[in-house]
Design a protein around this nucleic acid. Sequence first.
DNA 1: CAACCACCTTGATATAAATCAAATCGACAC
DNA 2: GTGTCGATTTGATTTATATCAAGGTGGTTG
Lengths: 257, 257
Amino acid sequence: MTERNATNEHWLRQVTTPLGQARVPCSQCSMQGVCEALSGDDDDKTFVRRGRLGSGQTLFRAGDTFHGIYAVTSGAIKTYAILDRDDVQVVDFHFPGDTVGLDALDRSAYTYTASALTETLVCRVDVDNPHIPIERRQDVQDATIRALGEQLRHEQNLSILLRKQNAEQRIATFLLSLAGPSVWAPARGVDLQLPMSRKDIANYLGIAVETLCRLFKRLQDDGLVDSQGRHVRLLNVAALSELAHPAESTEVETCSV
Amino acid sequence: MTERNATNEHWLRQVTTPLGQARVPCSQCSMQGVCEALSGDDDDKTFVRRGRLGSGQTLFRAGDTFHGIYAVTSGAIKTYAILDRDDVQVVDFHFPGDTVGLDALDRSAYTYTASALTETLVCRVDVDNPHIPIERRQDVQDATIRALGEQLRHEQNLSILLRKQNAEQRIATFLLSLAGPSVWAPARGVDLQLPMSRKDIANYLGIAVETLCRLFKRLQDDGLVDSQGRHVRLLNVAALSELAHPAESTEVETCSV
DNA sequence: CAACCACCTTGATATAAATCAAATCGACAC
DNA sequence: GTGTCGATTTGATTTATATCAAGGTGGTTG
C-alpha cells in the first residue's frame, strides 16, 4: 500500500501544473535554480535562453547533436521514436515544469524527437560545451541529478503501469496524472484541455485507438468523465482513482455497499 | 531503422557481461573510475566497500534510508516493488557492471527492494552524507550522471518494449539481452544460466507464467533455444533477433526464400 | 461551395494471452 | 525411502484487446 501510494504520487508529480494553466514560475520548474544561477551573470555568458514553438514544430530530432536540455514553461511537448515508416512510439509528454532531453545529457546526440503539441514556451539550458559553468557549479549538478532521478522514477512507474494495468486503468491513471494536484480539490469537476490527439494517447498508453475510444465512451456512460473531443471534464475523481488503483479490498468489503 | 538499432543496442548494453562470467573488472563497471577515485585515499575515508550477499538475501528494502548505491561485480540482483500482499512487480534485473539504487540518488529512501538472486558480490559507494567527497569530485559527478542517463534510457527502452512487443518478442529480446555481446560470436550456441525463476521473468516481462512456459516450449520446438529449467542455450541467435525486431520487409520479400 | 484529409467514433470479428485447473518435477526435510 | 512444498509444465476455456471495416466529424484548401 505504501508502495502503491508512492507510485501514484509520482505519477501525479510528473505534471506539476494542471493543464490549461498559462505559465509555470521558475520555482516550480524541475530545473529549479539552474536558470537563475546561469543567466544574467555576464552578457556574453548566458546559458539560458527562452524559445517559442508553434504547434507541431520540432524542437530537436533523434540523432541531432546534443546542445542542451529544455524546460517547458507553457504548452506541451511530446517526445517520440520513429521505429519504422508508419510506426512511431510516443515516449513521453512534457508539461510546464518538466524537462526535455535529459536522457541525452551524457551523450553527443538526442535520443528521441521532440515536437510541440501546441504553442509552447521553453527555456533552453546549454550544456553542450564542457567548458561552460554548468559542468562546475554544485547547485547545477544537484539540480541535474535530481531531475534525472525524478525522470527515472517516472519511467519506472510507467513501466509498472504497462505491465500491471489494463486499458481502462491506464486511461484513468493517465487522466488523473494530467489533472495533477487539482484532483485533490475537485470543486465541481476538473477541466482538462488535452493538447494531444487520441492517437498519441493510445500510442503512449500502448493500446489501440479504437480501444481508447470505446473506453472513453464507457467512462462517459458511467458518468466518470465528460469527454468532448479534446476537452475532458473529470466528473468523479474518486471513482477514477478507484479504477486506477483498485482498493486492496480483501477484508474491507463493506465499502462496496 | 536507426532508431530500432539504437534501441536494441542499448538493451544489449545493459548487460555488460554474459551470464556466467565470474567477475567484472572495474573498467567495465557503470561506475567506472568512481571506486578508484574514492577508495584508498585515507584509511578512515574509504567510501567504497565490498560486500557479499547469499542467494535470496536482501540488499535493502523500499523505504529504507538511502545510504549509497551499489555496483554489482558478480552474481545478480533483482529490484522489485511490493504492490500488495501477494502482488509484487519486478522492476529490473542487475548484472555485473550494473548499478543498483541509482533511482534513489536524490532521495532519502530507496524506491524499491533489492535482493540477490544468487550468491552476489557488490561494491557499495556511500553517498548518504553531503559532506563526503563524492559530492564534490567532478569525475564522480560525471560518472553518476552517465550512469543515470544509461539507466533512464534502459527504462525508456523497456517501456517501448512493453508497448510494442508481444509476449514472444519480449522473450526473444530478453534472452538476447541476457546473452549480451556473446550473441555477436555465437560459436555453437550461447549458454545461459538464468539466475531468476520463470515467475520473475514473466513478472518482469509483464506476461503470465503459463504464457512464458508455452512460448519457451514453442521456441524449443522451433529449434531456436534448448531450455532445461534455468539452463538455456540459444541455438539460433539470428532467428531470435528476427523475432525480437522483425525486419521491415516491405520490399525485401526475396529474403524469405 | 465542394473536395479532401486527418481525426474520431462505432460495429463485427479474430486472436493473443489470461485464467482456471491439474499433472509433473525437483529440492529439501525428516 | 516418503512426504511436502513450491516451481514448472500442459490443457481447456474465457476474455480483453487488436484488427478490419465503415461512418461521421471538423478543419483546411482550392
